[in-house]
Design a protein around this nucleic acid. Structure first.
Lengths: 174, 174
DNA sequence: AACCGATGTTTTGCTAATAAAACAACTGAT
DNA sequence: ATCAGTTGTTTTATTAGCAAAACATCGGTT
């Protein structure tokens, strides 16, 4: 069926990668510095002030960012809701990739960052349930993880579903 | 630390969402029709021929797509490697979301589609290992999944890590 | 031969997200 | 008071990805 009805939903995402990071930058700056101005956001994201100014102007127009009488920025209630959901998804994905799949922290951070704003709320919620149970002290979960990790370590004794996983995922490609 | 060194790696992705789907469209058309022309790709992706023509011209220049003497398209070896890795990641993610997290098929398809080309090869490989073991007939895996699903069903008896998962992930927000 | 439909390309225009540069306004030090 | 540095904005330009429209080509009908 070519799944042609699905792939365009990508762009229909109301929160772009860029917007997600402008918003979370404001959130983190408020925590780190206690305030957030256009220049602070630009510095945090390593873009020019001009670019940040334009994007933030649009976010103010969308009601996600509020401006002080002195140009100090703040998240609106809507903006904070969005940031909370993004950070929750990012944290869950990072935890799963790092603590379950045992990917190194940088890789987990990068992939979580790429994916965070794209996951549906349903997926985020279910993944949270799953990771929480998986990393709980439930003996079944403990045993399952121990077995999985041990298979990961000595994977020569394990019959993988495909002959060459590395090639399948282009691990060698350049 | 603001993680400002990470978030820009998003765009550094050599395979964009659009490119991923142009390539996989050619692959699927070759399977379905036995051939793939610019118009066929455009129809499959529901974009104009003009847009497809431009994108495919760039892909020919990058050596990922080859052109027949009669304007018939074909994936190069490099192009096929990329498509294989994308389809593998999409399949694994879809399987995980649908068969493990029990998300409905449409949601699983959409999220897998959004994410497929963004996952690193390492993440794809580890996830494949994980899902394969999780859905195997290993008794520990069986028991773990059974317990997880039963907790999913009667989640009022389970103490979730956060008070209100639905609100955290904006399940109510329009 | 004339026409019609499908195909491929090019040109123009649009939006999002960026950089770069020019500009204005404020701040602080001397 | 001036000068330097910081800040915010605007303008111009670029790139990716699309649409729309014009154009050319080819193939088959009549």
């Amino acid at each position: 069926m070519m799944a042609s009805d699905v792939w365009k939903e990508y762009e229909s995402n109301e929160i772009s990668h860029s917007v997600a990071h402008h918003l979370t930058a404001i959130h983190e700056l408020m925590g780190d510095l206690g305030y957030a101005r256009v220049s602070d956001v630009a510095r945090a994201l390593e873009i020019t002030r001009g670019s940040a100014s334009l994007t933030l102007k649009a976010l103010k127009a969308r009601g996600l960012v509020l401006e002080d009488h002195n140009k100090f920025l703040k998240l609106s209630d809507d903006g904070r809701l969005i940031v909370d959901s993004i950070l929750a998804k990012r944290a869950v994905v990072r935890k799963f990739l790092n603590e379950v799949l045992k990917l190194d922290e940088h890789q987990a951070e990068v992939d979580a960052c790429k994916v965070e704003h794209l996951l549906s709320a349903q997926t985020g919620g279910q993944l949270l349930h799953f990771v929480y149970f998986l990393l709980s002290d439930d003996p079944t979960a403990r045993q399952f993880l121990a077995e999985f990790w041990s298979k990961l370590d000595q994977n020569e004794e394990w019959q993988w579903p495909v002959q060459d996983v590395d090639q399948l995922f282009n691990l060698e490609s350049r």
